[in-house]
């Protein structure tokens, strides 16, 4: 993570859905900076020798910097971070967070905003809502969840947003009609998606089919890195060799060895951590590099991408 950390203390934590916990964070020394809708912070969790760093959207009102709120879904395939937050963090716990950064800001030129949230993907929109309402913007929030696991803030949103809120609980077999929803929109409508890849793919496929403008689709795509096969990374410039475990990303392995790589999203989106590759086959898993850059085999995004074989030689 680039820049300076902010020391915070957990002021409150509560269960907001069966698998989602919300944490309110208060700064210990300086006041927290104001932020813009759609911002996230990277939370650093120290677990003995191990350090987890996960990005979480801020879900409080951007005009109220007295505390930041984040919500964490317990991942069944947790690599440690979300489990740590759920099981080890309680009121009074201390954490370090990055200053807010924004890779998912609303486009204020839009005539109408359609927010599509899948599960814990509701979080970035929680900071959109107060600002959309203050500006009297035209918007709809479509919330897709499974009430046995997710569905945070459902009752609260229903009450606050009234006719602008649409809930789809798959546990009750309610599905969001994405194609009809898109076809019904007027020019100037923008769609924002935060949710599973299947939802994102469905929106893009539909857009391509009916000639819906792609620039009006905004995606909060970053997700935690998926595990893979362990491999060896040879750092050509420093002459070091490090082992990357199955459960950790290359970026995390580098940080474990105190090698700082600039980064922001830790999810293959922002492009900050791009690293040169001298040799070795790459399994690209990011949304940043172009197809041409990927096939050149000369660089990768260590936050999500890995070796396809036993070894990678890096230009660091």
């Amino acid at each position: 993570m680039s820049g300076s950390y902010i020391e915070v203390q957990v002021e409150q934590c509560r269960q907001v859905a069966p698998a989602i916990k919300e944490f309110a964070l208060k700064a210990l020394d300086a006041p927290l900076p104001a932020f813009s809708p759609g911002s996230h912070v990277v939370v650093e969790m120290r677990d003995g020798q191990k350090t987890y760093r996960n990005p979480y959207s801020l879900l409080s009102d951007p005009r109220d910097p007295s505390a930041y709120r984040i919500a964490v879904r317990l991942q069944e395939q947790s690599r440690g971070g979300s489990r740590f937050m759920h099981e080890r963090i309680a009121e009074g716990s201390r954490l370090r967070i990055s200053p807010p950064a924004n890779l998912f800001a609303p486009d204020w030129r839009a005539r109408k905003h359609i927010l599509l949230a899948g599960g814990v993907g509701i979080t970035p929109f929680m900071s959109y809502l107060p600002e959309l309402q203050r500006r009297n913007a035209d918007f709809e929030l479509h919330h897709l969840f499974r009430s046995s696991r997710t569905g945070a803030y459902d009752a609260d949103l229903r009450q606050r947003l009234d006719g602008r809120y649409f809930a789809y609980d798959s546990a009750r077999d309610k599905r969001c009609p994405v194609a009809e929803l898109m076809a019904a929109q007027s020019p100037g409508t923008h769609i924002y998606i935060c949710g599973p890849q299947s939802l994102i793919d469905a929106v893009y496929a539909n857009a391509a089919q009916i000639g819906w403008p792609q620039e009006h689709i905004h995606v909060e795509a970053f997700a935690a890195p998926e595990p893979g096969e362990p491999f060896e990374a040879v750092l050509c410039k420093s002459g070091k060799t490090i082992q990357v475990g199955a459960e950790e990303s290359l970026l995390e392995a580098l940080e474990r060895e105190h090698i700082e790589v600039p980064n922001l999203c830790r999810g293959g989106v922002c492009g900050q951590c791009v690293t040169g590759v001298r040799d070795g086959a790459i399994e690209h898993r990011d949304h940043f590099l172009s197809e041409r850059e990927k096939s050149s085999g000369q660089c990768l995004m260590p936050c999500v991408s890995r070796a396809k074989g036993p070894k990678l030689e890096l230009e660091i």
Binding site: R111, S186, P187, G188, T189, G211, P213, Q214, E215, H216
Partner: peptide
Amino acid sequence: KAGFAPSQ
């Protein structure tokens, strides 16, 4: 200004 995107 009418809301159409440059790609259109």
